[in-house]
Computed example of a mutant assay.
Amino acid sequence: MNEAFYEIEPRTERTHSKRLAKRLSKKAVVRAAIAALWVSLAAGVFILAYVYVGGIQKQLDRIHQTNQTNTAELNRKLSELETALQSNADQAKAVQQQFAAVQSELNAVKEEMSLAGDSLSSTAQTKQALNDRITELSKELEELRKSIKKLEEAARVY
């Protein structure tokens, strides 16, 4: 009987060790599966974050490009505006010079009339010619004033 007892023990030990090995291997498989799941989850989150940040970077690049284009366009328009303002200022100076010339001519005609005095009254043609010239100069003076006003208004618009 002792022999039978000894034979049963090794079988139970073997069976017990096999069960223990199965339990350990099941635990190891579960732990490995959980670890693989966490690694997959972490990799997925990393990839998702990478794609999301890449999309934001592309949007920022497009915004930067748009800003550069708009800045260049504004600089171009500003240069055109400065050129137009300078041109208007130059035209205003030229009109003022013409205005001054017409004014001096008108003053010269008036002075000649006052110096001539009685001799002009005797000559109707000369008087009429001078009056016509004065009228022409007055009209030209009025047109120059209108031009100056237009140039001033154009300068205010800019």
Rank of each mutant, 00 (worst) to 15 (best):
A42R: 00
A101C: 01
S17I: 02
K127Y: 08
R156G: 04
R145P: 00
E80R: 03
I47Q: 06
N131Y: 03
H16I: 09
T126Y: 05
T71V: 14
E80W: 03
A4H: 02
K149F: 11
Y52T: 08
V95L: 06
L151V: 04
A33M: 06
I34M: 08
A33K: 01
E80D: 11
R14Y: 09
V51G: 01
E152Y: 11
L20Q: 14
M113S: 05
A84V: 06
V53L: 15
I47E: 06
L48M: 07
A101H: 05
T83N: 04
R76N: 04
S17R: 03
A32E: 13
S114Y: 02
D61L: 06
I8E: 11
L120C: 00
L130S: 03
R62Y: 03
I47P: 00
K22N: 08
D132G: 10
K93G: 02
Q96L: 08
S104M: 09
V51Q: 06
I47G: 01
N75E: 14
E9V: 15
Q96M: 13
M1H: 05
Q125S: 12
A108G: 02
L24S: 06
I47V: 14
K77A: 14
K150M: 07
R31F: 12
H16D: 07
T83K: 02
Q97I: 15
F99H: 06
F46D: 00
A32I: 06
K27Q: 10
V157W: 07
K18F: 13
V109D: 05
H64F: 09
E73L: 08
G44L: 14
Q96K: 14
A72W: 01
D61E: 14
Q97R: 10
A36V: 12
E73F: 05
L137K: 01
A116C: 07
Q98F: 02
L120V: 01
S122K: 07
N107L: 07
L141S: 12
K127H: 07
E111I: 10
E143V: 03
L130N: 01
A92F: 11
L141Y: 14
S121G: 06
E140P: 00
A101V: 10
A43I: 15
E80T: 03
R62T: 13
F5I: 14
L37P: 00
L144E: 01
A28R: 06
I134M: 05
F46E: 02
A49W: 09
A33P: 01
S119Q: 13
A49K: 04
F5V: 07
A124E: 09
